[in-house]
């Protein structure tokens, strides 16, 4: 549930969300900027990892630049009794980046499993879909494939003061 973030927490999140400084002692540089000690910055980041606010600290690849230009959102109507087992199975596929259960809104929206796919071209996406279908049978009723045609907004996190 909602974690209460302190003012320092928020400053640290805002200062690091675009990346760490690329210098020999990046945490020290952050510390100076935020008027903390280097050890405080490191301890705070460790704490964020422990509570899940930070998933990992990473060299984050730009998938698009690496040629992964086909990104699709596939949505599936899965039998409720099987959704956890199948969701966990789908999340293990190497080309699946995110796999979420979300509520249906019947009758207009019957889909309860969202599987995000990444590939270098659309034909590979279709191969991936075939693979997913095989694994979900006979516990899915239908699916749809949605491509993003336009990014209308994409910003970093904004935190209310």
């Amino acid at each position: 549930m909602m974690k209460q973030l302190s003012a320092t927490d928020k400053q640290l999140i805002l200062a690091t969300q675009a990346g760490l400084p690329l210098c020999a002692k990046p945490y020290q540089q952050l510390a100076q900027q935020l008027q903390l000690t280097e050890q405080q910055v490191i301890a705070k980041l460790e704490q964020f990892i422990q509570c899940g606010i930070i998933r990992r600290i990473a060299v984050v690849p730009n998938h698009y630049k690496l040629g992964y230009t086909a990104n699709a959102m596939s949505v599936w109507d899965i039998d409720d009794d099987f959704i956890d087992a199948l969701g966990e199975k789908m999340a293990q596929l190497p080309f699946v980046s995110h796999c979420y259960q979300r509520p249906r809104h019947l009758p207009i929206w019957p889909y309860n499993l969202f599987i995000m796919l990444h590939a270098k071209d659309k034909s590979t996406i279709h191969t991936q879909i075939q693979q997913i279908k095989q694994q979900l049978q006979p516990h899915y009723q239908r699916y749809e494939l949605l491509y993003s045609s336009k990014i209308l907004k994409k910003t970093g996190l904004r935190l209310n003061p």
Binding site: C23, I53, I54, R55, P61, N62
Partner: peptide
């Protein structure tokens, strides 16, 4: 550092840093 600068300049990496999980920070 040189290698990472190169990757950054080529745009192959978007950043080096934390990957946040927004849902842990609120709704």
């Amino acid at each position: 550092i040189h290698c990472l600068r190169g990757l950054m300049r080529k745009g192959v990496i978007s950043r080096i840093g934390p990957v946040f999980q927004a849902k842990k920070m609120g709704a």
